[in-house]
Design a protein around this nucleic acid. Structure first.
Lengths: 121, 121
DNA sequence: AAATTGTGTATTCCGTGTATACACAATGTA
DNA sequence: TACATTGTGTATACACGGAATACACAATTT
């Protein structure tokens, strides 16, 4: 598990953790069954509060990306490659709907959006 | 001037105002020289604080979209169509860089992003 | 002078994010 | 069984941003 926290970011710490770890899981960088570090240890290493780590882990659990066993730890859930792709696309699409509503409010067409995307991706 | 405030939105009110009005200006719905309503009146009509409106107007000023004359009011700035397009694309691109960094963190390629975009736009 | 409009400031309130600390529950191990 | 480890729950506290109210000041118009 490898995460970076930006204190200058506008996003809350727990969300940064959630986004980075969920991306790593869905990219296959964290295998099924992998045991996340204990929340206390993660808190120490990242220099954040236990509650902050807990909050991130809770979001991961809510998304079905990990499962938690009290007294043992938090483990990356089991997925088929198809499931992983489906979940990834779901998460991306959800975000994309928000993003595009902004573009639409400026009157951009799909073609214009694609054109701009090509310039920066 | 026609704006809608969502109290359920996670975005602050002043930002909602800023985004909607800047979009309207850059779409040409608010003509150059158009006088925005007095901040007190806008605050009354929108049922928000004067400070909240002020903050939105300040952001518009900072973006060069309006200019303010104490004692007279706030007026939509003068643009050539080219300038308008440039400013619009600048604002969109800035947002797009943020948006795409999220997609990239999940390992999406440009083609995949375009494909998903076509599904929802 | 008075009304209108924008500016600036002080005070207050609330919610969120974060931190610290302590008690409790479940699990594993000596 | 006793102890360590790990997750859960709760209480308290602090900082910050968003937002509201209120009042005083500045510039413009009538």
């Amino acid at each position: 598990m490898n995460v970076t926290i930006s204190s200058t970011s506008e996003k809350p710490i727990y969300q940064q953790l959630y986004e980075q770890i969920s991306a790593q899981i869905l990219k296959g960088e964290l295998e099924s069954g992998y045991c996340l570090p204990p929340i206390r240890q993660a808190a120490l290493e990242l220099h954040v509060s236990v509650i902050t780590v807990k909050k991130a882990w809770e979001e991961l659990e809510r998304s079905g990306l990990i499962h938690t066993v009290t007294g043992k730890g938090c483990f990356v859930a089991e997925f088929t490659p198809d499931e992983m792709l489906r979940i990834r696309n779901e998460m991306i699409l959800k975000q994309m709907v928000t993003d595009t509503s902004y573009y639409k409010s400026f009157g951009l067409t799909l073609d214009e959006v694609v054109e701009l995307l090509k310039q920066i991706y």
